[in-house]
Design a protein around this nucleic acid. Sequence first.
DNA 1: ACATCTTTGACAAACATTTGACAAATATGG
DNA 2: CCATATTTGTCAAATGTTTGTCAAAGATGT
Lengths: 211, 211
Amino acid sequence: MTSSNKPALPVIRRLPKYYRYLINMQQAGKKNVSSSELSRIMGTTASQVRQDFNSFGGFGQQGIGYKVDTLVTEIRHLLFGDGQPLPTILIGAGRLGTAVSQFLVRDANGYSLLAAFDNNPELVGKTLGGIPIRHVDELRSFCSQYHPQVAVLCLPREGATQLSSTLVEMGVKGFWNFSHYDLSVDYPQVMVENVHLGDSLMSLGYHMRNL
Amino acid sequence: MTSSNKPALPVIRRLPKYYRYLINMQQAGKKNVSSSELSRIMGTTASQVRQDFNSFGGFGQQGIGYKVDTLVTEIRHLLFGDGQPLPTILIGAGRLGTAVSQFLVRDANGYSLLAAFDNNPELVGKTLGGIPIRHVDELRSFCSQYHPQVAVLCLPREGATQLSSTLVEMGVKGFWNFSHYDLSVDYPQVMVENVHLGDSLMSLGYHMRNL
DNA sequence: ACATCTTTGACAAACATTTGACAAATATGG
DNA sequence: CCATATTTGTCAAATGTTTGTCAAAGATGT
């Protein structure tokens, strides 16, 4: 019997990794994969793989394993919903913003980058890999017209708080925050993903010195 | 009695966040902080804060709370050891590499960036915020002379695997890997921190569509 | 058709983490 | 000096996650 509860948080955090490996397999023409094979690649146990997949619906055939295509489709659906990309804007077109926008356009699924904003007049009017850079003053009018749902924040700490309130007010539902500070908004309907490069670096340092 | 076991992994993952907030407090001149106050800021429970701090030594005074300075010192020691920065090199001086190097030099503690490498002759000879860009051909000779311990990989997938073997051979003990693929080395003494921007983005998307 | 091998799905046991509760220590105000 | 507030450290209970086990289903080779 297939469980129909929502997958637990640890499972969700593993989904992107499954997805990456499964896409690789799909591209390599692999049709089926067993939990034990996946577990070896993922560095976990076969038991966990099976339990993970069962938490969002039991496909997989005894004696054969799981169909790569089915898994890809299912996980893609979980991660990206109906496939409608989320309209996204980027704020802060400095070095980090440039790198992030490139990533968004070239390597990320499920998001469509509509525009970038900066308050530096020298940048305004240029493009970021095809995306026009506008002045932040145009933010409100842009939002009322195009209703972006996701905002990527690549600006210094100072600007971020104030700007995020404005954006929430304008209907933004998700933040991907690269500012060096923890953005937290009080509206329960708004999701924030704080990216702290420093955290993973500190983690690396800790493990290097203690393992 | 102060426990002297190593802190559990979840605790370690929280340390950078504690550290950030505590540094803020220190700069604001705050002397003491209670577990409940910290828990409110961190979004957890006071109980967890106390248990976390106890896992790496019980300081903190009943009736008062914890001394901010002591906490900062202790956590810094855990994260950065004796304060000796880890000699670091960066490979791949493209957009991402540029942004990451900037971050490393300006915003990260505990690492000193010695050099950057790229295979694009147009970049070689230029600098990355004061750090010279060299050709990857010089990598081996550079390593034998300067013995970097950490390598930051900002290059496309293809190059990464082969390069990492060379680097391990040359004595690199830690990788901060931004390639879009999971680097895994077989030497137990070598730490790898894979940074997948895409994962946090997929996570955001999932939560936006399912919450 | 049969025996054997592979593999899933389910469940329970083992393990890990978080939370709640409370005694003991310190501070504060009268 | 005493009563009351705060706050830690610790322990046990509650909760959450991972792992091991095994019957049943399907595949494979003879």
